[in-house]
Amino acid sequence: MGQFPQLIQEDLDLLNVVMGELLTKSEAHVALLVEKAGYLIHQCGNPASIDTTTFATLGSNAYNAVQFMAQLVNESKFTSMYQQGENFSTLMVNVDDNSLLVVVFPTHLTVGSMKYYATPAAQAIAQRIVVASERAPGKGLDLSDLNPTDVQALFKKQ
């Protein structure tokens, strides 16, 4: 289980293309790239009514929990998960060891068609993550401007 790489603008541009195409072709509403620890990495579509940060966290933990459950019955191949709703449904597709593609779509669309479009999108994202990982695997954050005394009390009580 490696670390999710740092992304630069070029990566985000590609994610916009891949996830945008997914939404156009599938007619889904929202696509989220989520790191499995719960972080929202990128989002596309129209998430106005969704708290995408919370959605990403709940989605990743739900996926991890079901994966854990599958392992208990020696089921190692676990690549997607589907939640069926009355108005909107959610499909979560594994991208790689560290990330997931989460797609929210109206229920008149079928999960089969969603998988059809989401699977190649997830593969394209996975390839880009490999590129990003190879670009600067050990590059840290430049904290030369950080004065440690400034963070003595980052959060204050009202």
Binding site: L143, P148, A153, K157
Partner: peptide
């Protein structure tokens, strides 16, 4: 009573940022 809550949170955030600082310096 919210006593010690912010002190704890501020210390862990400070330690985290110091760790990033040290890890960054090593690279």
């Amino acid at each position: 009573n919210c006593d010690g809550v912010f002190e704890t949170l501020n210390m862990i955030t400070r330690m985290l940022l110091h760790k990033f600082l040290n890890d960054g310096a090593r690279k």
